[in-house]
Amino acid sequence: MDNLNSSNTSSLDHTSPDSGRLISSIVLGLCCALGLPGNIAVLVFILRGSSRRPNFTLCLILNLASSDILCLATVPMWIYSLLHGWTLGSATCKLATFLLYLSLYANVLTVTLLGVQRYLQVLYPQMWNRLGRKGKAALVLALWGLACALTAPAVTTRYVGDGELKCRRHSESDAERVAVLILETFLGFVVPFFVLVTSYCCLHRRLTRLVTSVLVAFFVLWVPVHIVNMVDIAGMVLRASRPEASAVLLRHRSAAARVVRSFTFVNSCLDPFLYAFASRRNWN
């Protein structure tokens, strides 16, 4: 996720070719144009189609659509910064970063909770039913609370430097940056993906088509982002002992970041089709 604004080369880096910034802006614009109506349609479809209180699965899908809308709502600011630099000040930089990371973490945690919920409903229904309405509401509140907590490192280290036109991370040291990237990769990808795979493998052949789509989409859209994070970490770790190798890694990392940074927004476009529009047949 840090590929959206890195301390080395970012989407806001005006040393990159104009064509690269323009292509990135077009991709982000398409994500916003397709994803916002799709997720809004999900909200309308579920809220209007539910004559009674939605079940917990539909609540999670509403949660997912809400986090996607929040994510895509920040796109105009990132497009503006790509084309004109960040001229909106440090406070807006922190606010935009908070909204973006909050929505991304809420998205990942919601997808993970969907897998856990389905696992418990199928294999341990009595345990799941014992939670009751209050217990399930507490799960959703805890999800957003955890998303806020995970967002804190990105927000506290992000600001606009003096004379800069970039909303980016400013770390006190390489060690601090490495620690934040490891935290983001571990909690934002490794743990959720492990929980999803474990939950769905325990269901064996049930929900096969939807499960396959969920796992493939999660892996394809998130693993490139965290691979780039790992390359970034390797480059910083090798900076002192092998500066030439470090420079090569960081250069390749910067080039790859221009490609993978849009994947997080593509994910928000695909969610309505993966979860909501398949929900009536597969999740109810």
Rank of each mutant, 00 (worst) to 15 (best):
D2N: 13
L4T: 10
N5A: 13
T9I: 14
D13C: 06
T15H: 11
S16L: 14
P17L: 07
D18G: 07
G20H: 08
R21F: 06
C31Q: 03
C31S: 05
C31V: 02
C31F: 04
I40A: 11
A41D: 15
V42E: 06
V44R: 14
I46Y: 10
L47I: 11
G49H: 12
G49N: 14
S51M: 09
R53E: 11
R53W: 03
F56R: 00
T57N: 11
T57E: 09
C59E: 13
L62G: 05
L64P: 01
S66M: 12
S67I: 02
C71E: 00
T74V: 15
T74D: 02
V75E: 04
P76D: 14
M77R: 12
Y80F: 11
Y80A: 11
L83W: 08
H84K: 08
H84I: 01
T87Y: 07
T87K: 12
L88R: 06
G89F: 09
G89M: 09
C93L: 03
T97R: 02
F98V: 03
L99V: 11
L102S: 00
L102Y: 05
L102I: 04
N107M: 05
L109M: 03
T110C: 15
V111A: 08
L113K: 03
Y119D: 12
L120I: 02
V122G: 00
Q126N: 07
M127L: 10
K134A: 13
G135Y: 08
A137P: 00
A138P: 01
W144F: 13
L146I: 15
A149D: 00
L150W: 07
A152E: 05
P153E: 13
P153I: 10
A154Y: 08
A154K: 02
Y159Q: 15
G163W: 04
E164M: 10
K166P: 00
C167E: 02
R169M: 12
S171W: 13
E172S: 12
S173H: 09
V178G: 01
V178Y: 01
V180M: 14
V180G: 05
I182M: 09
L183F: 13
F189A: 01
V190N: 06
V191M: 03
P192N: 12
V195C: 14
V197I: 13
T198S: 15
Y200A: 01
C201H: 12
C201E: 10
R206L: 13
V211L: 01
V214K: 10
F219N: 12
P224D: 08
V225H: 07
M230R: 00
V231I: 15
G235N: 04
L238N: 06
R239F: 07
R239W: 04
A240L: 06
S241Q: 12
P243I: 01
P243N: 11
L250G: 01
S254K: 02
A256W: 13
R258M: 13
R258K: 14
R258F: 09
V259E: 06
D271V: 05
F273G: 08
R281M: 09
N282L: 06
N284M: 10
